[in-house]
Design a protein around this nucleic acid. Structure first.
Lengths: 107, 107
DNA sequence: TTCATATGTCATGAATTTATTACGCATAAA
DNA sequence: TTTATGCGTAATAAATTCATGACATATGAA
């Protein structure tokens, strides 16, 4: 898996995981890769909303999308989990925090 | 350290860590315990704002506060890091997600 | 051609989170 | 008693995040 090398990357991961729907999405993708429309039905939310959450997860490099053709012949966009595994503790945070780009404002 | 036993606890941790100032606060507390006013100066924010962030960290059980008397004789409230260390990966999330209390609305 | 199911985005609004300012109270030291 | 430094909170505003509904396009099957 990809390594965490900066506070900003670490922060992006936490932000991506800080929502119940996104944790549920990860849970679903743990079982199998899935395409957007089906995933929306599984999780019980609208596609527009799902896109929003998928975007955050993808930006944090926790998932990744690709196109595939369904048996029905229609094109579908599948998302797969991007393997990740790190030891989360205060030392990791202390180590990466100094490289945080501390501004939340628009630049 | 305390164990993570539910999706809600896991979510609370991610929410607590999903802000640059809170990561910086943890970094500071890694060096040494600190009292509110001094911590606010160290981090460069106002006390009211710091209280807000400390509250989130404390609710996630990542830090803990207690009172002490300064050499000056004044009462001060110190915060210390609450040791934590988990193996963060998709399996952990998949395991705890089912116990999430999926409602964000006011009840 | 019409229906069902895919993809993707835009505009708007609701809800939360984050941040600021202004108070009030207590105690030690000048 | 005035100044400096602690504590803590309430009210309000600013910013971001989260959610909905309406559209638009494409393809296979009836």
């Amino acid at each position: 898996m990809k390594q965490l090398n900066s506070g900003d990357e670490l922060l992006a991961v936490f932000e991506a995981l800080a929502h119940p729907l996104r944790l549920t999405i990860i849970e679903q993708l743990t079982r199998q890769q899935q395409y957007v429309s089906q995933l929306a039905r599984d999780v019980g939310i609208s596609r527009p909303l799902l896109y929003l959450h998928l975007k955050k997860l993808e930006e944090a490099n926790l998932i990744q999308g690709h196109s595939e053709i369904l048996e029905s012949g229609k094109a579908a966009k599948y998302y797969t989990l991007q393997p990740f595994d790190f030891d989360l503790n205060a030392q990791l945070i202390a180590q990466l925090a100094p490289s945080l780009t501390l501004k939340k404002k628009k630049e």
